[in-house]
């Protein structure tokens, strides 16, 4: 049997963190080294009929993590349209998540 390696800390990040542009810092690798689990939002450029169900599924997963007592944070990126869409969708479920300190 293995022990429980889970950090119980999860951060929601915009697609640009998972797929940084050339020359940008690799924040995903930094989060990995810090022990955070990552929930990646889909690219904001996807058509609405694809992105809406993807975001709805992410909201369901984040709620499961919150209900399980996990720490969930947002990587501050209010200017990212994908992040704004996620925050709005989460709010309709009556939940909020704070920015990563």
């Amino acid at each position: 049997m293995r022990g429980d390696a889970r950090s119980r800390r999860v951060v929601v990040v915009p697609d640009v963190v998972v797929n940084p542009p050339d020359g940008a810092s690799d924040r995903l690798s930094d989060l990995a080294l810090s022990g955070w689990g990552v929930v990646a939002l889909p690219p904001a450029t996807l058509p609405a009929e694809i992105v809406h169900p993807l975001v709805a599924a992410i909201v369901d997963q984040v709620i499961a993590l919150l209900d399980g007592g996990y720490e969930v944070a947002l990587l501050p990126s209010a200017a990212d349209p994908g992040m704004r869409r996620f925050v709005a969708a989460l709010a309709t479920s009556g939940r909020t998540v704070a920015d990563l300190a």
Partner: peptide
């Protein structure tokens, strides 16, 4: 999902805290 978030695994199923760094490094 769990390759970036091992917190989604069942108890005792996770092989790392969060992101599977060796897989990420290979993809990079």
């Amino acid at each position: 999902h769990c390759l970036l978030n091992a917190n989604a695994k069942v108890d005792e199923g996770a092989r790392c805290q969060g992101v599977s760094s060796p897989v990420l490094a290979l993809l990079r």
